[in-house]
């Protein structure tokens, strides 16, 4: 177990859901820094469509929990301009599928201002958004788009897989002076876990976690697939020793932790819900072959969504969504 995980376990913790952990992270940062405010659609009285902001409005009021018009480009642009002029907005983009509606603001303004201005603009903005299929929300409310953002220069991207990382990464994002996207998978909002209570607990952006140690094969899993891979690893424990790593940050990526593991196990599975082609899987695979090519004993396997949209009908949805079973099958192919 890495020192990082050990030190997290030694601290005082409480049991929270991922949803509660994110809300607690926002609550603590709102209390800590009055330049922080939340902005998005129905995050106030309504509490957020997936109830993440919840009761924050009751405690912080309309000045700090700002309900916007249904106007993704407008409020993403406003948050960008606000971040450049002395405040620290935390945007809720209701579903990650709406990224495209606001993409001009994200890619040409938020991501480029600091660079184009020779470093003379700050951009301390956080964008929280929810990804993933599994609740019958159909193609326009179920996508996983984090590869777009992780790919685009000038943006940082994190994607928590546990309650602790949900809190630690959200707090780190809000404290960061860079634009950070927090990709929350909607199917794990109810997942429970031990979360450090220390108000200064953060998880550095760009630091992976070894969630389970193993000797035979490395599974790099994100978001919902972290928990499912851990369950798969447990179920296979009699036959195969599986190491599970949650990269937690997609950009920057802690490739060192992954490479160290692959050098030990010689086998790698990359499990991420994003579409298989040209994305997160490919990036991890490419970097591993650059640094650990001669340590590989088997072809690297990818587990992800085939290049389809997420269909509505539950059996079709389950057909395309990657799962712990897919991770097991991938492990069995190479061990």
């Amino acid at each position: 177990m890495t020192a990082q995980v050990e030190s997290e376990l030694e601290t005082e913790t409480e049991e929270l859901t991922v949803r509660e952990a994110i809300r607690q992270a926002m609550r603590e940062e709102l209390e800590r820094d009055e330049d922080v405010f939340l902005i998005g659609e129905d995050i106030g009285v309504f509490g957020g469509v997936l109830e993440v902001t919840g009761d924050l409005y009751e405690d912080f009021g309309p000045e700090r929990i700002k309900d916007t018009p249904i106007s993704e480009a407008g409020f993403m642009g406003a948050a960008t301009g606000a971040a450049a002029t002395g405040t620290r907005p935390v945007v809720e983009l209701m579903f990650s599928d709406f990224t495209g509606v606001a993409m001009e603001q994200i890619m040409n303004q938020m991501a480029k201002m600091r660079y184009m201005f020779g470093g003379k603009a700050e951009m301390p903005v956080t964008v929280r958004t929810t990804e993933g299929g599994g609740m019958g929300a159909a193609s326009q409310h179920s996508g996983t788009v984090h590869s777009w953002i992780a790919h685009f220069p000038g943006l940082k991207a994190v994607a928590p897989g546990t309650a602790a990382s949900a809190k630690g990464l959200t707090k780190a994002a809000i404290r960061s002076n860079d634009p950070v996207f927090v990709f929350e998978n909607k199917m794990i909002y109810e997942q429970r876990g031990a979360v450090p209570t220390d108000e200064d607990f953060t998880i550095p952006i760009g630091e992976a976690a070894v969630e389970r140690e193993g000797e035979d094969v490395t599974v790099v899993a994100t978001q919902r697939l972290v928990g499912e891979s851990l369950e798969t690893a447990e179920n296979m424990a009699d036959d195969t020793s599986v190491e599970v790593i949650d990269p937690r940050s997609l950009y920057p990526l802690d490739i060192d932790t992954i490479v160290e593991s692959v050098k030990k196990t010689g086998r790698l599975i990359v499990a991420d819900e994003s579409p298989l082609s040209y994305g997160t899987h490919a990036e991890i695979v490419a970097r591993v072959q650059e640094e650990a090519f001669f340590s590989l004993d088997a072809p690297i396997q990818r587990v992800g969504t085939p290049d389809t949209h997420i269909p509505f009908s539950p059996p079709l949805e389950q057909e395309v969504l990657p799962s712990g079973d897919d991770v097991r099958e991938a492990i069995q192919r190479v061990t």
């Binding site: 406003a78 960008t80 040409n108 303004q109 003379k120």
Partner: peptide, 30 residues
């Protein structure tokens, strides 16, 4: 651009100035 002088940048995207101004006005108001 010279943000310290209040100049939030020329902009290569037609129509990008108003959202930036709304954002700056949001900071001012906040």
């Amino acid at each position: 651009a010279d943000v310290d002088a209040g100049m939030l940048g020329a902009n290569g995207i037609v129509g990008a100035g108003p959202p930036m101004a709304t954002g700056a006005a949001l900071s001012i108001d906040y």
